[in-house]
Amino acid sequence: MAHRRKSIGIQRIAAYATIAVALVVTLFPVYWIAANSFKYDIDIFSIPPQWIPANPTSKHYHAAFVERPFLIYALNSLIIAVSTTLVSVVFGSLAGYALARFQYPGRWRYQISFWILSTRMMPPIVTIIPLYIAFNHLGMLNTKPAVIIAYTAFNLPFATWMMKSYFQDLPVELEEAAMVDGDTRWGAFLHVALPLARPGLAATAIFCLIISWNEFLLALILTLTERSQTLPIGIAGRVTQYNTYWGEISAAGFTACIPIMIFAFVVQKHLVRGISFGAVKG
C-alpha cells in the first residue's frame, strides 16, 4: 500500500522503536532458556542473574541425553510426529479433494465439511478419557500407535480443511483437460491436482509436524513409560514437587525448540501462505 501518505520522521522512529521492543520481548525468553541450559547450577541461581553464561558447560545436555532418557523421548516425538503427519496429510488430501470437487446428494457436502471442522472444536480433554479407556482395553496404552491414532484424530480435520481450500483454489479445468486427454479422475488427481497442490501439502505437513511435536495433554495421559513418552512429557517430568532440575529442563526445553526454529526459517514462505489462507478460509 505504497499510496499511504509518507509519514514524518518521528512517527517512523517511534514505529521502529516499538518493533524493536517487540523483537526483544519475543527473543529474550528464547535466549534466556538457551543461556541457562549452558550454565552450571550455581550460575543459574546467581543473584543478580548472569545475563551471559560466564562458564559455559554442556553438562545439562549430557545429563539429559546421556544419563537420562531424553534421547529416547526425542526419538519418540520424532516418530510420532512424522507418522501422524503422514497419515493426516494422505487421508486429509484425499478427503479434501473429494469435498472440493465432487457433488454429493442434497446438502451432504456442506454437512460433512462442517462436521469435519466441528470435530476440531472438541477440546482434547473431552475425548481423552474414553480414548484412554479404549486403549486400555486394547492393551495399547504406553505404545506409540495409540498416541499416533489420537494425534491423527486431532490433526485430520485441520489437514482435510486446509487441503480442501487449496484444491478449491486450483482451476478445475486442468483436471478436466487431463480427463479428456485420457486420464481417469483418479489419474487427474494424481498427475495434475496433487503436483499443483504441493505448496498446500507442504504447509499442511508443517502444521501437523509442529502440532504433534508440541502436543502435551494426550501424551501425558496415554503414556506412562519411558519407552513411549515424548519430549514434552519428559521435560514436565523433571518439574517435581520437591525439586526442579532447571539446567536439565532448560537443556531439554531448548532442544525441543531447536528443530522448530530451524524449520520455521527454512519453510517461512510456505508457513505464511499456509497459515494465511488456511485461516482466512476457515
Binding site: P171, E176, A177, M179, D181, G182, V192
Partner: peptide, 29 residues
Amino acid sequence: LPKYRDVAMVFQSYALYPHLSVADNIGYP
C-alpha cells in the same frame, strides 16, 4: 469415461498444465 470417448477439448482458459513445459503439455495425451 471421458478417456475412452476419444475426443479432444480446447478450454476457454486453455487449461495448460502449469507445472509442465510446452512439450510436455502437448505430449501429455
